[in-house]
Design a protein around this nucleic acid. Structure first.
Lengths: 221, 221
DNA sequence: GATACCATTTTGGGATACCAAGATGGTATC
DNA sequence: GATACCATCTTGGTATCCCAAAATGGTATC
C-alpha cells in the first residue's frame, strides 16, 4: 500500500473515530510528523478526504469538517431518494438471496455486542442493501452518504429501545423485499430514514452544548 | 487561481472536449510540459479528476476514462432517482420562479445556435433544475452525473428532430412544475431520462466502430 | 490598557531531485 | 527468424527545498 493510501486510511479513521474532533484545524506538517510520511502523500490524502467531505479548506489551511445540522437534513433527503431507488431495483431482481447475508449481519448483534459494532452494522445495513441493487452509482452514493453521517450517528444519544426499534425496522424492510413487495419495502425504508434523521438531528441539537464542551464543532448551517 | 485549479480546469476541458480521447494514456510528465506546471499541481489535479471519474488508474499510470456503455445505463438510473427527488422538492416550494430562468435558457437556443451551446444548455437544464431544489447533495449528484455523461452525449448522433423533441420534453417538464403538478412533472422527467438513455446507448453502440476508428475507446462493460 | 505596527514564524503552494519498478528495445544465442 | 536476456529509459511515488502570504507575538505609542 502506498503512503498516500496509508495516510488517507489512518487519517479517515482518526476523523471518523473522533480522535480528531469536528472543526479541528489540521496542518500538513502535523500530519506529516504524525504518520511519518512526507508532505507529498499527505497532501494527496487530504485532497481525497476533501472530496469525501471529511476535511475542508478554511481559507488557507485544512479543517476537519464540523457536524452540520443542515447538512444532515439534506443528506437524509438524498439518501432517501437513492436508497429507495436501489431498493426497488433489488426487489425487481430474480435472485434476492443477498438479503440473507444482510439479515445474518443484523442477527450478529446482541446485548453483548460492543457499541462500535452496532454502529458499524447499522451503517453497513444500508450500504450492503444498496450494493444488492447492482448499480455502482447508487451504491457509492449510499456509502459516501453514510460515511458523512458516521460521526453524527456516533455522537447521537441512543438508548437500547431506539436501537431495538431500528433493528426491527431493518428486519421489516428485509422481510418486505423477500416477499417482493417493493412498495411496502420502499415505504418502510423511507419512514426509517426520515425517522432516523429526526431523532439524530434532535439529539444533536439538544446535546449541542455538551458536544461543544468536548471541543466538537456543531453548526446549524 | 492556483496552478492546481488551472491544470484541473484545462485538463477537464481537454477531456470533455475530446481533445484527449477516451482511453488515451496520460503521463504526468506530458501534462507537466503541456501546461507549464510542475508535477505537484499536476498530480493534485489528476487526483481530483479521478474522483470525478474522468481519469482512472491503469495499473501504474493514468488513463482517460473510456466511454462505458454499462456505466451510461447505470448513471441514467441514478440520475432518474436523484433528479426526480429534486424535482419533487422544487414542486413543493412556494417560490418556483427559478423555472423562468431555466425556461429562458432553453429559449436562447435556436437554429443558428452552435452545437456546443445546445450541448451545454441541454446539460445545464438538468443541473439548474436540480439546483432549484436547494438540496446541495442532489444538486452535486446531478452535476457530477451530467459531467460523466458529457462526452457520450457529444458523440451521440442526434438529428434536429431529436433535439426538438428533447426541448419539447424540457418545456413540458417546466410547465408541469409551474402548475405544481409534481406527479406529472416527475413522470415526464423519468420518461425523458429513460428515453434519452436508450437513444444515447443505441447511438453509441451503433457507432462503436466509427468511434474506435477515431481512437475513442468505447467499452461494453 | 488598548491599539497600531513590525519582525518572526508558520503554513500551504510549487519545483525539483531521487528512487524503485515496470516498460522498452536491442542483442546474443539457438 | 524466434526467443531469452540484459541494459536503458521512462514513469509514478516520495522526500525535500524554496517561496510568498498569512498568522503570530512582541513592542512602542497614545
Amino acid at each position: 500500500m502506498s503512503q498516500m493510501q496509508s495516510v488517507e486510511k489512518q487519517l479517515r479513521e482518526m476523523i471518523l473515530g473522533l480522535e480528531i474532533g469536528p472543526g479541528e484545524k489540521l496542518t500538513e506538517r502535523w500530519i506529516e510528523s504524525r504518520f511519518g510520511a512526507s508532505r507529498t502523500p499527505v497532501r494527496a490524502a487530504l485532497l481525497r478526504l476533501e472530496t469525501e467531505g471529511l476535511v475542508g479548506r478554511d481559507g488557507r489551511g485544512w479543517t476537519v469538517s464540523p457536524i452540520n445540522l443542515a447538512e444532515l437534513e439534506q443528506i437524509a433527503v438524498y439518501r432517501e431518494a437513492v436508497e429507495v431507488a436501489a431498493l426497488r431495483l433489488t426487489c425487481a431482481l430474480a435472485d434476492r438471496s443477498g438479503v440473507d447475508v444482510i439479515e445474518a449481519m443484523l442477527e450478529s448483534c446482541d446485548s453483548n455486542t460492543p457499541r462500535e459494532e452496532w454502529h458499524r452494522v447499522g451503517m453497513d445495513f444500508h450500504i450492503e442493501l444498496a450494493r444488492l441493487s447492482g448499480n455502482e452509482f447508487l451504491f457509492r452514493a449510499v456509502r459516501d452518504a453514510m460515511t458523512r453521517l458516521s460521526r453524527a450517528r456516533w455522537l447521537e444519544v441512543r438508548d437500547e429501545a431506539a436501537l431495538a426499534r431500528a433493528w426491527a425496522e431493518h428486519r421489516a424492510i428485509l422481510a418486505a423485499i423477500r416477499l417482493g413487495d417493493a412498495d411496502d419495502a420502499a415505504r418502510r425504508l423511507s419512514a426509517h430514514i426520515v425517522g432516523s434523521r429526526d431523532r439524530l438531528v434532535t439529539s444533536l441539537a439538544n446535546d449541542r452544548r455538551g458536544l461543544r464542551a468536548r471541543g466538537f464543532a456543531v453548526v446549524a448551517a
